[in-house]
Write a protein that binds this DNA or RNA. Sequence first.
DNA 1: AAGTGGTCTAGACCACGTT
DNA 2: ACGTGGTCTAGACCACTTT
Lengths: 243, 243
Amino acid sequence: MSIEQKSAGTVALYQRIRTDLETRILSGEWPPGYRVPFEHELMQSYSCSRMTVNKVLSALAAAGLVVRRRRAGSFVSRPRAQSAVLQIPDLKAEVEKRGERYGYQLLKLTKRIATANDRARLAVGARESVLALRCRHDADGEPFAIEDRLINPQAVPVALQQDFSVIPPNTWLVGQVPWTEAEHRIIACNAAGADAAELKLDEGTACLVIERKTWRNGEPITAVRLTHPGHLYNLIARFTPTG
Amino acid sequence: MSIEQKSAGTVALYQRIRTDLETRILSGEWPPGYRVPFEHELMQSYSCSRMTVNKVLSALAAAGLVVRRRRAGSFVSRPRAQSAVLQIPDLKAEVEKRGERYGYQLLKLTKRIATANDRARLAVGARESVLALRCRHDADGEPFAIEDRLINPQAVPVALQQDFSVIPPNTWLVGQVPWTEAEHRIIACNAAGADAAELKLDEGTACLVIERKTWRNGEPITAVRLTHPGHLYNLIARFTPTG
DNA sequence: AAGTGGTCTAGACCACGTT
DNA sequence: ACGTGGTCTAGACCACTTT
């Protein structure tokens, strides 16, 4: 017989399957409570052994995305809570959770060949394109955050067809693209120029800036800079010595 | 042949092996850098298949306890790779790590019966005393942080005899007092008053403020407010969806 | 009673880093 | 070149839960 193994692409089979399932779950195609296909069904779908799909489902269970029950199957679980600094927050949900009215406005959207500056923020190839967005988030009509984002279309081709004039890119991405690593850089700086104007702040007002990069298996997905008025936004982290 | 499997105890073999290895690592018996036995060695030790020990080592790698390198082996990894925002940093060590000269000055130290304000910061009893400190940290002679700290003497009696004019309280506490929980609140604000003056900043300069509380089994140990010039201090966090 | 996940095996090929 | 980890398979037995 022919053992194909990972001979094809360099990406492991169980990784592809995992990404596949994660995408379905995060996109909402498989909502919480949905019964994931049985192991033997996935074996057939992906033409692989049970060990392989078992590894994927076990990993998803360990990550909290699914709950497994003997005899019953595996089910998409509720999103887990995490400490706020280590979250990728959905600003819309955050604002609404506080009982405030959420507002969103797309200020600018361009697709361009990555400039040197872009490539410093998002490590894409030399002549590759990036999607650049700038938008504003409001809470009860007050500017709450300015979002400056670069998206790597190589990693998220669907982004090119997406209409960001209504759906904020963070909300969309959070539900659309499974990521594996993220980095936050948290900075305090004085509001200036367009940021100050668009946040309706006096020049010099302290702002909390969160620069976040996310990757999927080493491939950059997006880089975003969120500028919040300092008096409207704090980050909280609870933790223990062992993590 | 006789496939024993998990027939014996109800605990899975790979779980026993994992606990075993974790104990060796966490106890320090296998220090950082120690080369964990090869998979084929563990197979023999535990009389099991390679898949099983592989599952264990992969899990330990995913948890960050070991680093695996082809051809070389698996090695106990360095201090729990915890993200910086979830650390309790030793400012002295941080500054010196960047190759800068560390300076420290105790500005004020008082022991007093907890005021209402103190009790809001550090949840101690009504008539109990607190140790209040204010000090400054310098990097290469430049003010780097103002530290405002309350210590609960009920939790750390030794603190009363400690001489904080030379040893910074954070450095001392980090090495002295085991804690079980901590909380960070991260804020951006404009420098003002004594903070601005002691940091040698213009009024209004953006500062990154970190308010941290630590507990030991629910008992408050200390509450500290660290005010950093925004242009001198960023927080970094690296993380994954699973935490 | 039946079917699911939980665990385990004894092989195998491959990629890759160290030598 | 060699040996390690990375991945995969095609089976197997078992425990448990739901029907």
